[in-house]
Nucleic acid binder design. Structure first.
Lengths: 219, 219
DNA sequence: ACGAGTCGGTTGTATTTACAACAGAAAGGA
DNA sequence: TCCTTTCTGTTGTAAATACAACCGACTCGT
């Protein structure tokens, strides 16, 4: 578990907390580290959650399959990212989405009660961690608003352009790598894969962008 | 300002805090109360924000107009609701949406620095308020995920049904009142108003629902 | 090298949507 | 009351989308 302290140090949750203090907190918070093979579920829609999770290694998707098998991908979780925070509030219901590993992954579980309630011992960082938690969920929130912005576009092209240009801004480059293949990108933007593929090729022919696999370059 | 203490007491932000303590905090936090006429902007897209806001009276819409005048309504704010919390984090950029009053409204402004940093004096509630803030933003988060669920539906009918049935669940009744007129509902669900109106009438003819103005009844 | 499975692109068709234009009802102000 | 404005429903057409089916390229394991 200690091996991941450098990873944890760079997370939003432990921002501003030193290595030693993180080690201390790992035991103080009774952190657990679970591993998942590619394709395994980390969380399932409808479950109750009382832990805040941090991805130590691997990649995850937050998604949801409806009754007819239509998949909708809400988002992607990379190393160091927090997730599950939105469902640990007392009156929050059950999870609305599945979380599934798209690569072999390791996940930290922190019991929210221990994270939030200040304890008497050496852990003087609870207050800071709660603040960090607030800022982290703020960021998630803004990300969701951003996604709603993509989704509010009427055409597949507009959805693609708003998503890709935002991603270029985030990755600070006109050449970007997406965490999705075509089907996943279509599920993320809630459009038909073949129609999207078609549109992408049209846009390429018009000189708006280039792509190869999941690497895109905007012009 | 004191007149709104009963309102504040019932907000998520001050949940668990007594009347007297709220009064104390109002001055400790240097709260400001501003009023807006119907149609006025409370916040504008692109602005920086360093306050957490609470609606004391009236109704607000969170929305966004693009360059071509297409309006997208992100959500609705009722009395006692918190807003702006997602944009007060240090690295959060500028606001992505406008907030506009749809009725004459009064809004509390709380400087986030004062809310978050524990002060030495009588205000022993900062810790609790930060926790409340976390829970409140959690709820916002789940609401956004819910909205993404509506928006991920492919057809106008599916969007309407998922929104209306979720609203019925929230209002705990098959008879619900929406905070939107037709155009606003269309802007909220990102569909064409006339197509939506058409679809609503078809659904009514099929016996799925009834409506009159912004009151709906599901069967 | 082979076959199974995955992935991305292409095409055609039926469905759905957006857009524009119009009309009647309701609301609000002078 | 009259006039204006707003709101809602209706219709027709053009555009965009979903869906299904198919193909070739590629990957992977045997």
């Amino acid at each position: 578990m200690k091996e991941f302290v450098p990873v944890l140090k760079r997370t939003k949750l432990f921002s501003g907390v030193g290595d030693d203090d993180i080690s201390t907190m790992l035991s103080c918070l009774e952190a657990r580290l679970l591993t998942y093979k590619k394709g395994e579920y980390v969380l399932r829609q409808g479950e109750h959650l009382s832990d805040i999770l941090v991805l130590a290694e691997g990649r995850l998707h937050i998604q949801r399959d409806d009754y007819w098998g239509n998949r909708s991908i809400l988002g992607h979780i990379g190393v160091g990212e927090i997730f599950g925070e939105a469902y640990v509030a007392p009156e929050s219901g059950t999870l609305l989405n599945d979380v599934i590993s798209v690569e072999d992954s390791s996940v930290f579980f922190f019991d929210v009660k221990r994270v939030i309630s200040t304890c008497s011992s050496a852990c003087r960082f609870h207050t800071m961690v709660v603040q960090n938690l607030f800022f982290a969920i703020s960021e998630k929130n803004r990300g969701l608003v951003q996604k709603l912005d993509y989704m509010s576009r009427r055409t597949t092209r507009e959805k693609l352009l708003s998503y890709l240009s935002e991603e270029a801004k985030k990755q600070n480059s006109a050449s970007i790598t997406l965490p999705f293949n075509r089907q996943q990108l279509a599920d993320y933007l809630s459009v038909d894969r073949s129609a999207m593929s078609n549109e992408l090729c049209k846009m390429r022919d018009e000189g708006l962008l280039e792509f190869e696999k999941n690497r895109f370059r905007l012009f």
